[in-house]
Design a binder for these strands. Structure first.
Lengths: 126, 126
DNA sequence: AATTTTACTGCGACACAGTTGCAATATTAC
DNA sequence: GTAATATTGCAACTGTGTCGCAGTAAAATT
């Protein structure tokens, strides 16, 4: 399945690049200039994840957030981004912290996805 | 609002104690002997969380898991349990890892909730 | 440049998790 | 035993994310 570039894909990718933070579907939808269907946004984002262009974090609010991390751009093929995200309970911003931490697992355990989110108040809101 | 002990509350608490792992709502419902309404289970669990009897983890599947951690029983009042959970993608088990890690946050940031979940395959399933 | 191929989109419907209002019930206090 | 009120069950509802399908548009082919 070859990928095609459409106005939706470029707009969404540009938006994520410009933002720098992790964005939820509804953040993306309301930030887009043109009207793009909900389902399309989800499909675009899922494709980006498959292609390693973007990674997904699930917040403690149960919602998915999508981000292009500047510092993990180099190693795109690594599915398991083991850095931490911070979600502000006040302003809703979800940012990547540049903390790379290696967590030793018990014998016989294999890690596939790291979902590490700390929620609280960012420096703007605390 | 004083709390009352009912058959639902004791059954659910006993179940979580016996299990030792973090359980989702549907795991709990199917494990209960008596039929308890979905909404009731959620309400009971939310009350337990408020009272600090139980803590909540949100998996990268977006679902809530509830657990009584043996090792964090001592410091009940601490809302922010900063230990890590492991969710097996095969068998669905969600367990507490005994790793306590302190994550330094940037200046001005205040942590309220730690939601640290690693998904993969446990030693039984890998 | 026109045509074909097929990836992508929009719409609607759906599945699921979790919450809430309300009347009925059961627990606790008196 | 009776009164006060926390809890329950039911139904309805919200919100997130997915899927099938027909129509559209990007890319390849001619």
């Amino acid at each position: 399945m070859k990928r095609r570039t459409t106005s939706s894909t470029t707009e969404i990718l540009d938006l994520l690049k410009a933002s720098g933070n992790a964005m939820s579907h509804d953040m993306i939808q309301s930030s887009l200039d043109s009207k793009v269907d909900r389902a399309t946004i989800y499909r675009v984002l899922n494709r980006f994840c498959e292609d390693g262009k973007v990674h997904r974090v699930v917040g403690d609010d149960g919602k998915q957030y999508f981000a292009i991390c500047s510092n993990c751009g180099a190693k795109k093929q690594v599915h398991s981004h083991n850095h931490i995200h911070f979600r502000c309970l006040q302003c809703g911003t979800v940012e990547c912290l540049d903390r790379e931490l290696s967590i030793p697992l018990p014998e016989g355990y294999v890690a596939k996805v790291h979902n590490l989110v700390i929620s609280g108040f960012c420096n703007e809101c605390s």
